[in-house]
Amino acid sequence: MLTKNFLQVGDKAPNFSATSVYQQEFKQISLSDYLGKYLILLFYPLDFTFVCPTEIIAFSDMYDQIQSLNAEILGISVDSEYCHLAWMQLDRDAGGVGDLRYPLVSDLCKEISLSFNVLNDEGKSLRGLFIIDKEGVIQHYLVNSLDVGRNVEETIRTLQAIQYVQNNPDEVCPANWQPGQSAIKSGINRSKDYFQSI
């Protein structure tokens, strides 16, 4: 019998409670605080690095669009909350991230990164991105190497596709699907309408 020893799509996301930094203040948050909303978990290696601020800022700049989809964002790294605060207090043109629209979570003990299976052998978080639905279930995850940044627009498109199929359980989204485009009706005969239209 096969046994599973890692997280995958369809699993409940592991709950956690940790200190975050938001609007220059420390705040205790839990994953369960976000039930009823979609959540993008954005793991990244370290503050004060090179690729990380580009991602953190890009997601913050697109926050209004993400929030309009009933979704929130949490950034998570193995830095302390004091390090997060110092990074936020540093201007973007000096390598900081400035004021962000979402919290950064401290995973100093590395338990969150370990529970989501994104902790590497050096003790840093890989670039793991998880989309968790309103029920706390993982619907998508992507893990990049430390050297490759993620695409915010593709994250939003994936979130929109997840929401579409959850709201239309008899349909599935084809490759490159965008909101407003045709989806595929589930079933061998019903799916022919889509394939005959392309």
Rank of each mutant, 00 (worst) to 15 (best):
85 L>E: 05
18 A>Y: 02
169 P>G: 06
52 C>P: 02
188 I>G: 04
70 N>E: 15
186 S>Y: 12
5 N>R: 15
97 V>N: 02
70 N>Q: 15
151 N>Q: 11
53 P>T: 00
34 Y>S: 07
88 M>V: 01
63 Y>P: 08
19 T>K: 08
119 L>R: 10
53 P>V: 00
191 S>M: 13
31 L>F: 01
79 D>V: 03
156 I>K: 14
124 K>G: 03
55 E>A: 03
67 Q>W: 02
149 G>W: 00
115 S>R: 09
57 I>E: 00
172 V>D: 10
1 M>C: 14
129 L>K: 10
66 I>T: 11
182 S>H: 02
133 D>M: 07
56 I>T: 02
167 N>T: 12
20 S>G: 15
74 L>E: 10
177 W>M: 12
53 P>D: 00
140 H>G: 00
104 L>C: 13
87 W>H: 06
10 G>P: 00
159 L>C: 05
14 P>V: 10
161 A>P: 01
88 M>K: 07
126 L>N: 13
116 F>Y: 15
171 E>T: 09
7 L>K: 15
25 E>K: 15
47 D>W: 00
159 L>Y: 00
12 K>A: 13
163 Q>A: 04
177 W>H: 07
30 S>I: 09
5 N>E: 15
63 Y>I: 14
64 D>P: 13
135 E>I: 05
97 V>F: 03
155 T>I: 14
163 Q>I: 11
72 E>Y: 10
31 L>T: 04
138 I>T: 07
96 G>W: 05
120 N>H: 06
1 M>Y: 12
138 I>D: 07
167 N>F: 03
179 P>D: 06
48 F>G: 11
134 K>T: 10
152 V>P: 08
17 S>F: 00
67 Q>A: 11
96 G>M: 07
46 L>C: 11
179 P>M: 05
1 M>S: 15
124 K>Q: 12
117 N>I: 08
100 L>V: 07
147 D>I: 13
85 L>W: 04
133 D>W: 03
159 L>G: 10
191 S>H: 08
97 V>S: 01
193 D>G: 06
56 I>R: 00
65 Q>A: 13
167 N>Y: 04
155 T>S: 10
37 K>Y: 04
43 F>A: 02
77 S>H: 03
27 K>C: 07
12 K>M: 06
13 A>S: 08
145 S>R: 10
98 G>W: 07
144 N>P: 08
46 L>M: 13
108 L>S: 10
124 K>M: 12
66 I>H: 06
38 Y>Q: 04
127 R>I: 01
47 D>F: 00
188 I>Q: 13
120 N>F: 03
78 V>L: 02
34 Y>M: 08
151 N>D: 15
106 S>D: 04
167 N>E: 14
33 D>L: 11
161 A>R: 08
52 C>A: 09
